[in-house]
Design a protein around this nucleic acid. Structure first.
Lengths: 242, 242
DNA sequence: GGCTTGATCTTTACAACGTAAAGATATGGC
DNA sequence: GCCATATCTTTACGTTGTAAAGATCAAGCC
């Protein structure tokens, strides 16, 4: 009961006193509708602006710098404005993570669909997984390292489930099987867990810099991509002819 | 230059005024040497007491509850006392993580040494890895999820390296090979990365609750241990006869 | 057109945190 | 006995998340 976020369920206060707030001219100027120079209605699409500001702050200052007040500063609004749209910091971080999962999922699907051979689909998806994390380390941190994620939020729940479902499809494709929705044999479950663990573990270790010791000992600066490829090819039960 | 921790390099102040501090009797009482009822010298082994307090706070309140002030409260000292022994929060968390890595490493080695077959050594170590994380989720969080770790600290650096070296040895044993210290072939590196990624990824996913969807669909509440075993057995190039 | 209403944003306030600095105190060497 | 020093406490400050109350504007009603 301590965590009741209002978030658009505005508490109408008693109000009605004097003391005029400062003039409207003093407020930050950039309050216009997204890509539409006119009609600066109430205060613009602040929710979207805050999410974009949050992503900028994240990639600039890292996960530790992603605070409610920093995001508000970046967006040019008062420090309490984000509370109205996201309830609390957990809410903002969760919505940001949901965006990350959607981008993530799209990247994996695009990579998988670009391949024709079923076995290659899985490999391509896995590579896209790692590539996304390398390109957006801040987002990856929000999605997998942040302690403030509320998976009961539908947006986050759905986006996160969709991303892992995509990876599971890749496994099914590479084994020429359909993954059933209800029952699951142990070896099927093991195959899914193996694919998830391999890709997710590799990414986590790579971003934590724990693979640099290995990469440095490889011939002439082999890239992480090559190591990933070798790791995955050795992991499939029947190695592809290519 | 903003992060110069003093940490035992005490800044001698000018000092010397009046205003007596409160009586010694008001202070917390438990200030005696570890397992030695007498000789309560200056204020006891506070450094050790703080680390133990930190572990208690961690397992009780989670990573988010692990603050300098909470640890000081748990140990019954002033909120600024930990600073003297660890410099800052990063220092305390790093030392705690080092302890975690040492316990972690001991558990893996003990499990590996209990087996005679080389292939089994790797499996046993991997299971010990996951078992430790399940038994000490707070510690695992400090070691792998905390944003405040300073790997330039020798204690943390060494303990962390030792833990991963142990896992690498397990891989070498399971492949009947010696992992060379200098050069490394791509397939050797891939084998190490595969073992690390599998075990670490599985653990991360398990602790994040992302495997529950799979576990629930397995026959009659199969344990995570069974899934791990099946996953690992399917991953080794030459499956063991057992 | 004046008025109300409700959503949006700002101000103000407070407790908890990390950290620095200065004051107090006991220990061990002399 | 005395003092230098390491250890611990007090005090203080800036930052954070969050609650609550005040201000402002768009829209609808009469």
């Amino acid at each position: 009961m301590a965590k009741t976020s209002r978030e658009n369920k505005v508490v109408r206060t008693v109000a009605r006193t004097r003391k005029p707030a400062r003039a409207a001219a003093e407020r930050p100027a950039v309050r216009r509708r997204k890509s539409s120079g006119d009609t600066p209605y109430h205060h613009g699409d602040l929710r979207e602006a805050l999410l974009q500001a949050a992503e900028r702050v994240l990639e600039r200052d890292g996960l530790a710098g992603l605070t409610l007040r920093a995001v508000a500063r970046e967006a040019g609004v008062s420090h309490a404005a984000p509370t109205h749209h996201f309830g609390d910091l957990t809410g903002l971080v969760s919505e940001l993570a949901a965006i990350g999962f959607r981008m993530f999922n799209e990247a994996m699907n695009a990579a998988g669909n670009s391949e024709t051979l079923p076995i290659m689909k899985g490999l391509a998806s896995a590579k896209a997984y790692v590539a996304y994390a390398q390109a957006h380390p801040g987002m990856y941190g929000v999605m997998f390292r942040s302690a403030r994620l509320d998976y009961s939020r539908p947006s986050l729940h759905e986006a996160s489930d969709a991303a892992f479902a995509g990876l599971t499809r890749g496994v099914g494709a590479s084994r020429h099987e359909q993954i059933p929705q209800d029952g699951l044999a142990l070896d099927q479950a093991a195959a899914i867990a193996r694919a998830w663990s391999l890709v997710h573990g590799f990414t986590t270790l790579l971003l934590d810099g724990r693979l640099t010791g290995i990469l440095e000992r490889l011939p002439e600066g082999t890239s992480a991509d090559k190591l990933l490829d070798a790791m995955l090819r050795g992991a499939v039960p029947r190695p592809p002819g290519a």
